[in-house]
Amino acid sequence: MATNFKLTIVTPDGKKITDEAYILNVITSAGALGILANHLPLTSIIEISHLNYKKNIEGKIESIDLSIGGGILNVTKEEVIVLAESFETKDEIDRERAERSKQRAEERINSHDPNIDLKRAELSLKRALSRLSL
């Protein structure tokens, strides 16, 4: 049986997940990463993407998927911490809202208005798409 490690995911709004996992899959700005127990200390940037971790409960493997709005991954000797801007599980996602923000972002990007912060709109679109595709 694979060794477990302590995983904590927190947002600035205080939303928190504390769990035991044996593998954490994230997409960092340098590519996809799978973190197992006893990983070297590591700090990395997590993209707006999906995050997945698996836990082993008495031989039964449970996989948990989250949509994450970007963040920082911090692996230390003792535990793995994900500082997320935001995260949602599948049930928590407000699809209507995500759909709306997707439309809004698309309109903004297509409007070619010089006053619009294109980068912001793109990030917003990315977040909405990530939520919708989970």
């Binding site: 960092t28 700005s29 340098a30 990463l33 070297l40 200390p41 590591l42 700090t43 990395s44 940037i45 920082i72 000797k77």
Partner: peptide, 13 residues
């Protein structure tokens, strides 16, 4: 102090 890995680089992080 522990040596910490940075992905992709320290500056970017």
């Amino acid at each position: 102090k522990q040596e910490v890995l940075f992905e992709p680089s320290k500056e970017e992080v």
